[in-house]
Design a protein around this nucleic acid. Structure first.
Lengths: 283, 283
DNA sequence: GTTCCGCATGAATCGATAG
DNA sequence: ACTATCGATTCATGCGGAA
């Protein structure tokens, strides 16, 4: 199997026009937040943020397959003591573009930035907005199953009786059996809350999110040989993870320094022979 | 000290007009979600939700003190495979009413209800939206401090012997004071992510949220003798907790069965004599 | 080679100061 | 008045050096 990694230098809303429509399985990205990273990206004013982002999401909509998924990592900042609304306005605007707002995952940052203020606590979570072109999309849930704790086990045992009664009367035969199947397994499906720490290592590249974040969504929404796109590549976390997981990937970055740094660290084409099981490194 | 609990039967947006303005310190409520609880509340169509809710928030704005806080527990439901937008539209509309959208807390439901769907995972979180009338409001952060993480944990093992000495020297020399300063550093301020399990009590009424939820916000935003309001009282969780914590409380409920049930279980007036330390039961 | 400790480092936010 | 910059606050994490 041949896995390609394609890196582009430039403004993603322009570069994306070169790509064919319906060609990407997963878009995972974390755009520069409003007024953040001014030194590298110039900073986008909160009032102009939606207007700035919409041309890009329009291109993303075009290149995404109907079965594909767009995961957007974002969080509104505090301005004058209150939360900005540009994320909510962005969601509403993207729906008008045709996007389905399927779900909102929560990334719980266990090691959030410290600080103390009279009127608020530390911000320990970010949004992971899931958008789709269609109600039907690819989702490989069994790939992200997690070990079940004893605590959950006992809980399910207690609930199983009530579950069987209620759901069998509703649906028929299916649901109650699922529950009993779970008891025999030691794996359970996760929820829409993800617990991950940010990586604050001394390396040159300071990634905005830990590798575990794109890894989880790449597992969930793609298979080996599929294509992953990150239009705001930054330090390249998404691209490195996708490559390691045997997914084709496309990374676009407007800052030359970042682009060159990623380019120097990645192999554009890799061959995988007689390997069916992937080894993703750390999980 | 005399603590009053006032219960009203009726539509809260009407009942609230009887109350003077600027008289409530904390509003904590979980309104009927759109199209949920149809049997008891009739159900509100998602498209009409904002329109339905705004007259109530207008009254809430009126009765809340300038230093007070409004905590709204809400979550959008899934309709035709995608998340509704009525919560976001509500926030935008409330801002036009004059509310400050100060913060969004996340309630991470550690034991959310089991289930399996082909296109989504179990929903394990809800929003706790904080609104204020002013940038300045009362917040008693030290009341909700939590034990610190592992750095101190390992240290506490070594300190255990010294800990004993502290108790002995409490009465006597000033040696204990140094230690207590150390121990103060074992507590840290929490974040805006709350981890609470849903309660599975055997009572007839199924509370929408666990007692720990209103308890945390009552600790954080009020003091003994302050006034807490829940305009959608339901099974009365907020009222019971407020009463136990020696706060005056006002509960409004439109369903007679709920109203009577709460009324039969609460003392309208309670006297507390010569007690300076509160015992809230479980923390 | 382990374990332990010290230290720098974050998509932060507020309030004061300066242009 | 309104924006830009700076210092103070604070904690989980992972690295490197030490015991």
């Amino acid at each position: 199997m041949e896995i390609n990694t394609e890196l582009l230098l430039g403004d993603c809303k322009e570069e994306l026009k070169k790509f064919p429509e319906n060609s990407v399985d997963l878009i995972f990205t974390s755009p520069p937040y409003a007024d953040q990273r001014k030194k590298t990206y110039g900073g986008i004013h909160p009032d102009k943020y939606v207007e700035w982002f919409l041309p890009t999401t329009e291109q993303l909509f075009r290149v995404l397959k109907p079965t594909g998924t767009f995961i957007l990592n974002i969080k509104e900042k505090v301005i004058n003591g209150e939360r900005s609304t540009y994320v909510m306005e962005l969601i509403l605007a993207m729906k008008k573009q045709g996007w389905f707002w399927t779900e909102e995952f929560i990334w719980h940052k266990k090691n959030c930035y410290p600080g103390k203020w009279p009127n608020r606590f530390r911000d320990a979570w970010e949004r992971l907005l899931q958008f789709n072109k269609d109600k039907k999309f690819n989702m490989y849930q069994e790939e992200v199953m997690v070990p079940m704790g004893n605590w959950t086990k006992t809980r399910l045992i207690k609930l199983s009786e009530t579950d069987k009664e209620r759901d069998e009367s509703k649906v028929g035969s299916g649901f109650g059996k699922n529950i009993s199947n779970w008891l025999n397994r030691d794996m359970a499906y996760p929820t829409n809350v993800l617990h991950l720490s940010t990586e604050c290592n001394n390396k040159n590249h300071s990634a905005a999110f830990p590798e575990g974040l794109p890894e989880w969504f790449i597992k969930l929404f793609t298979r080996e040989g599929d294509t992953v796109l990150d239009p705001f590549m930054g330090s390249g976390t998404t691209i490195f993870v996708a490559s390691r997981m045997k997914r084709n990937s496309i990374g676009i970055e407007i800052v030359p320094e970042y682009y060159e740094m990623v380019q120097s660290q990645i192999e554009p084409v890799e061959l995988y022979l007689f390997e069916s099981k992937a080894k993703y490194g750390k999980t």
